[in-house]
């Protein structure tokens, strides 16, 4: 279901390709590099985030996704470590699961946002950018009180509400919500039930996928040290 590859692009400092369900996305992180004069911040790193869709040219839809990704990355990257520098993040969707058919006007951005967040995690690690903590994002559809994690676009269309939730993972525990985007009808108690189930899922993803992958990656990258 989920597969990750890192260090695919030679010209970027860090890159990762993630296949999550039917969504395939590649992210590249370059930094810290020299910013343009208007981008420079005196005591922090500035972020330049670009999202490109799977089909066609970027529109306001991608602008909104950039804004959400930016608010997440702004808080999780240790920006004070790279003052007056720029970190460039480019996310390119290769295969997107946001519409049921090509001509459908109803667009679900949650799978895209979810894949972009998770892919950026691996790309940032590959680039060696300092992060305050690990983070895991999940895309969840709720229908009649039943949760589906990583739903397909058809499941999203049938759901009552759909959510993207991203947790901060410290010492293996999901302790803070970094981002929550909910759309659709949901009641308060359903919402909190969803959040607590998501905590379990996120910790599972972290232990079974993220930790394992990073451990293997470090072993492979530093094989010359043995």
């Amino acid at each position: 279901m989920t597969s990750v590859n890192t260090s695919l692009l030679q010209k970027s400092d860090g890159s990762a390709e993630l296949l999550l369900g039917s969504t395939k996305v590649i992210a590249s992180v370059t930094g810290p590099i020299e910013p343009k004069a208007r981008q420079e911040l005196p005591n922090q790193a500035s972020l330049e985030i670009l999202i490109r869709p799977a089909v066609g040219l970027a529109t306001t839809r991608e602008k909104l996704l950039e804004d959400k990704l930016r608010s997440l990355l702004q808080s999780i990257i240790v920006r004070f470590k790279y003052p007056r520098q720029l970190i460039q993040v480019v996310v390119q969707f290769l295969i997107s699961d946001s519409k049921r058919t090509e001509t459908d006007l109803v667009d679900y951005t949650s799978n895209d946002l979810n894949a972009a967040i998770n892919c950026c995690y691996y790309a940032l690690i590959d680039a060696g950018i300092a992060l305050k903590a690990s983070f895991v994002s999940l895309s969840i559809a709720v229908k009649n009180g039943n949760l589906t994690v990583n739903p397909t676009v058809y499941e999203l269309a049938q759901s009552d509400s759909h959510h993207v939730i991203c947790f901060n993972i410290e010492k293996g525990k999901a302790n803070k919500i970094l981002l929550l985007e909910s759309q659709g009808d949901i009641k308060e108690d359903e919402l909190f039930a969803m959040i607590s189930k998501a905590v379990e899922e996120a910790e599972k993803v972290h232990h079974e996928q993220q930790r394992k992958f990073v451990k293997e990656k470090v072993e492979n990258d530093y094989v010359w040290k043995q």
Binding site: K68, S71, L72, Q74, S75, K132, N168, K176, I177, L178, L179, L180, E181, S182, Q183, G184, D185, I186, K187, E188, L191, F192, I195
Partner: peptide, 20 residues
């Protein structure tokens, strides 16, 4: 009617935590 239609939450500050 106690239905939530949309939530957009972002925790941008490591000092302030948005608790449940």
């Amino acid at each position: 009617d106690n239905v939530i239609k949309k939530i957009s939450l972002v925790n941008g500050d490591s000092d302030s935590e948005i608790t449940l």
